[in-house]
Design a protein around this nucleic acid. Sequence first.
DNA 1: TAGGCCATCTGGTCCT
DNA 2: AGGACCAGATGGCCTA
Length: 190
Amino acid sequence: MKTKNRPPRRRTPLQDTEATPEEQTADRPQSGSGMELTKGLRSRTPRGAGARAEGGRRRQGPSSRRESSVQRRLESNERERQRMHKLNNAFQALREVIPHVRADKKLSKIETLTLAKNYIKSLTTTILTMSSGRLQGLEGQGPAQGPKLYQHYQQQQQQSAGGTLGATEAQPQGHLQRYSTQIHSFWEGT
DNA sequence: TAGGCCATCTGGTCCT
DNA sequence: AGGACCAGATGGCCTA
């Protein structure tokens, strides 16, 4: 299995035959994509139509209204791009805290989420097992957090089982099993 | 070459 | 009203 180390995304801009090169790139804070404004906004009037009168301000005509709506779209695109970058950073951070994964294979997003879910569940199982074992000898000497935790966990699992989870997944042991199976399959490259 | 994965654009909806 | 969020569409890159 080879790595998926891709170069930064470079998209070829679709040609907007009406737009000048300045129009295609101006006011765009280093987007790096060049794909902006390809759908829906392609029939812009060329710059200059509805030009401003010398000197004073002028009431917005249809063309400048279009320009400001184009401007809003560009800003919105940029925000969306930033949002997705933040999301991807979060995915990367998550990848880095999931152990036992081959370093040369970058997990896909869906793999990351699935593996993380099962990892969390297996950790939960471990904690519950350890805490209930440790607290067993302390009954009658104060609040027993272990059993309470376990009761809470069981409630959560029952609710989940009534929803989308299968019967195996509702069992604590199932999480550990599933997690190790997943880890194994990643090692195998399947 | 097909299929998987991904980045980006876009318009609609929700939220503040 | 404006920004955040979301999902669908589109197209590029990569691997088997």
